[in-house]
Design a protein around this nucleic acid. Structure first.
Length: 774
DNA sequence: CGTAACTCTGTCTGT
DNA sequence: CAGAGTTACG
């Protein structure tokens, strides 16, 4: 178990005389760079402080300078500061910036991180008080859903009618509000499977305890409970944390808020920085009201407003302000800049998403030719599926890009498998991991075997690994699976015995090789296999940087990203949520269409509040831009595989005409001017069944799904005919193409079945109708 | 037990 | 459309 930091951990930040002198010398200088309000926010160190910081007003600068100031004035040592962020990216960036202010040693700020990461750390120290072992597993969403499914099945609830996903959502919502099963209000307990919601929640929590596991919500909730039930532990942290800082305070949910308040009520030195206009995590339980409550919870709190924007040009700021002014219920801030007006933001209509990608690609190439830095260009999308089109286009153009927050590295199949192996080694009680890999690669340990293990496991309440160990000594299994299982258990025992003595990356390589997992992918001839092997190598490489296997598994469950080399300058493609806190010279905002942005689901689920949150997201997007802002909307977009005609986003109507330039849609779309405002008379915020877009979608669904024709009809009858007649007969030796297996040569014909030697996949038996001639 | 083909269903944001 | 789950068959 982790111990408190030893004093030997001192770093130059706190340590040597020279370092301290240097810090003192620098002190005046970093305060000078601030405006009066920022300076007040930095120098009001003792007592509660709320900083209302508009976009681009130097929020991060205030936070980092404040920390540097606290350290250099000797008021606290690095490990006595609690600094909470919402994303790992924000934490990393803050650490870097503090380092550049106060010199190396920012790693001593060991309590700088996300709510979840800090909670995990606290929880591991006091695991036994929470009924856990300190090496507990952190389940991700996938594991969570799989486990819930088991719970539902055990209760004989039809998981078709009551999808585990929905239960997961419900439980998450409860956890976000700080509610454990016994605190769920009576009325809400009815909400799932005919009133079983509360019971299922309780059963799920029981299962988690047995598995020695927590989910994301538990990290907060269990820490909260730990504090509430153990006054001495709470007191320890209240004493430890002399100063508390919270970034993006508007995004805290109730559980986080309670967590924070509990600690902060010790010394009352808490500084929260937030902007109600940038609250975009309502769907995750964030309560903007927490900002409003601040003064009540901390009487005598000082409030500082930062309204001077240093980031964007006048026109961009005007567009943002005008748009956000449409929201009701704001605290109200007026951002201003003394900078130049700059270029007007542009709004461009295009025919479809393909043209959108093409237009933006060309635009970027033009900037590139003029010498603009690709690092300073970003494309911010509402939903990650929009990214693909840009990726494809940029690949053909050879334009370097980076996708941030796309499909996560650790969510990939092969990475999850590999991690499951490692979890089985490090955490032998980890049943979810065991189930995942027991028959991957295929070793003939199927449902039948697993059934036997489960039965024993349930009877003796023992982990599956333990069950297997016992069962292989009995006659319960057939000889073949019995022998296989015995070998597998022996392998795991052997690997486990090496944990202490073998570097974790070497151990991982050994596990993956000897288990046959890497071989499985080498034998796999599908096109993705090579990439998967690459990813596995990347995983092993990434492990080197960690102190041990447990440390790595902790990191991976909370953060893990692909850190691709930053050697090349690239365009960034990311979601609007992911872009919060960042800034770029040039920002592209594609996909401003009804249904996509604002997203239909937000509207359906949360009505007016949902719309306002979407608008704040638009505000976040616009305010990321320093000098150039280019908004796009397409008339046609493929949604769920169907081409649909879309309408320009209502947010376009929220932009001030005087500050925005409307560009003629290239290709002469009839939507060249979006100004024909179809929402002027609509007071509704739109329900899925009343928007024109939806109705059109219904029609489109009935009438087929071909891409709307632009000038020439895309579907040429001849093509269709040619295809169906050609599938009449194949002869041995003919070259064919299969959607999944690629090109191949027909070896044998048997009625409508063909035996084909595929170039990559080897010989397969396929139905005639599944291949086409080449 | 494993593979190929078929059926169904979701459908965004992220620690 | 894509992925998960299910069924038929070898």
């Amino acid at each position: 178990m982790a111990l408190s930091p030893a004093p030997e951990d001192f770093t130059p930040l706190e340590g040597g005389v020279a370092a301290r002198a240097a810090a003192l010398a620098g002190r005046g200088r970093f305060l000078e760079a601030l405006n009066p309000e920022q300076r007040a926010a930095v120098e009001t160190i003792d007592g509660p402080l709320l900083v209302l910081a508009g976009a681009g007003t130097g929020k991060t600068r205030v936070l980092t300078t404040r920390i540097a100031h606290i350290l250099s004035s000797g008021r606290a040592r690095p490990w006595e500061i609690l600094a909470v962020t919402f994303t790992n990216k924000a934490a990393r960036e803050m650490r870097e910036r503090i380092e550049s202010l106060a010199g190396p040693g920012a790693e001593a700020l060991q309590w700088l991180g996300t709510f979840h990461a800090i909670s995990a750390k606290i929880l591991r120290r006091h695991a036994e008080l929470a009924g856990l072992k300190s090496n507990f597993t952190i389940l991700d969403t996938d594991d969570q859903i799989r486990l819930l499914k088991q719970v539902l099945q055990a209760e004989n609830i039809d998981d078709k009618r009551w999808p585990p996903r929905a239960l997961a959502h419900q439980i998450d919502a409860w956890k976000n509000r700080g509610l454990s099963p016994d605190h769920v209000p009576a009325g809400e307990a009815q909400s799932f499977a005919d009133g079983k919601g509360k019971k299922l929640y309780a059963l799920y929590q029981e299962r988690l305890k047995v598995l020695n596991a927590v989910d994301f919500g538990d990290l907060l909730l269990e820490t909260l409970r730990l504090f509430r039930e153990n006054a001495d532990v709470l007191d320890e942290y209240r004493q430890r944390f002399k100063y508390i800082l919270v970034d993006e305070y508007q995004d805290t949910n109730t559980a986080q808020y309670l967590w924070l308040r509990l600690i902060a009520q010790g010394r009352h030195n808490v500084c929260c920085v937030g902007d109600d206009d940038q609250s975009v995590y309502g769907w995750r339980g964030a309560e903007v009201e927490n900002i409003l409550r601040f003064e009540k919870d901390f009487p005598g709190a000082k409030i500082v407003r930062l309204e001077r924007n240093y980031r964007s040009t006048g026109h961009i700021l005007a567009a943002a302000s005008h748009l956000i002014a449409r929201n009701e219920g704001r605290l109200g801030k007026t951002l201003f800049t003394e900078g130049a007006d700059g270029e007007k933001p542009t709004v461009t209509g295009v025919w479809d998403s393909e043209e959108e990608a093409r237009a933006i690609g060309e635009d970027i190439e033009q900037l590139q030719r003029k010498g603009h830095d690709l690092e300073e260009i970003a494309i911010l999308v509402r939903a990650s599926f929009q990214m693909r089109e840009f990726e494809e286009r940029f690949i053909t153009l050879g334009l370097p890009y980076r996708v941030i927050g796309g499909p996560r590295f650790y969510e990939r199949l092969e990475i999850r498998d590999a991690l499951a192996y490692l979890r089985c080694v490090a955490q032998p009680f980890d049943d979810l991991a065991f189930e995942r890999i027991v028959n991957t690669p295929k070793r003939g340990l199927g449902d039948a075997t697993l059934q036997v293990l489960h039965e024993y496991s349930r009877r003796e309440s023992a982990p599956l690994m333990q069950a297997a160990r016992v069962i292989v000594e009995t006659e319960e299994l057939k000889p073949k699976p019995r022998a296989t299982l015995r070998t597998l258990i022996a392998d795991f025992d052997r690997w486990r015995s090496l944990i202490e003595t073998t570097p974790q990356n070497e151990l991982a390589e050994m596990v993956l090789d000897e288990s046959g997992y890497t071989q499985m992918w080498r034998d796999d001839k599908t096109p993705e296999a090579a990439g998967r092997l690459e990813n596995l190598k990347e995983l092993v490489r990434a492990m080197e940087e960690f102190p041990d296997l447990a440390g790595f598994l902790e990191h991976v469950s909370l953060v893990m990203e692909t850190d691709e080399s930053a050697d090349q300058r690239r365009v960034s493609i990311m979601t609007l949520h992911g872009a919060k806190g960042l800034e770029f010279e040039t920002v592209y905002l594609p996909g401003w269409e009804e249904g996509l942005f604002p997203h239909q689901r937000s509207l359906d689920d949360s009505g007016r509040a949902g719309l306002e949150e979407e608008r704040r997201l638009a505000y976040v997007g616009i305010t990321r831009a320093k000098r150039r802002l280019k908004i796009f909307f397409a008339t046609n977009r493929r949604i769920h595989g169907l081409w649909q005609t879309t309408l320009p986003s209502r947010f376009l109507d929220d932009l001030p005409a005087a500050n925005v330039e409307v560009k003629e849609a290239s290709g002469g779309s009839q939507y060249g001017s979006y100004g024909v405002s179809r929402f002027a008379n609509m007071d509704s915020y739109g329900s899925s069944y009343s928007t024109p877009g939806w109705k059109r979608a219904q029609t489109a669904r009935e009438s087929g799904a071909s891409k709307p024709a632009r000038r020439t009809p895309p579907m040429i009858e001849g093509e269709v005919l040619a295809k169906s007649s050609a599938s009449a007969r194949f002869v041995a030796g003919a070259r064919v193409f299969h959607q999944k297996f690629g090109p191949g040569t027909v070896a044998n014909v048997d009625g409508n079945k063909l035996q084909v030697d595929f170039d990559k996949a080897g010989r397969k038996m396929v139905l005639e109708s599944f291949v086409e001639p080449t």
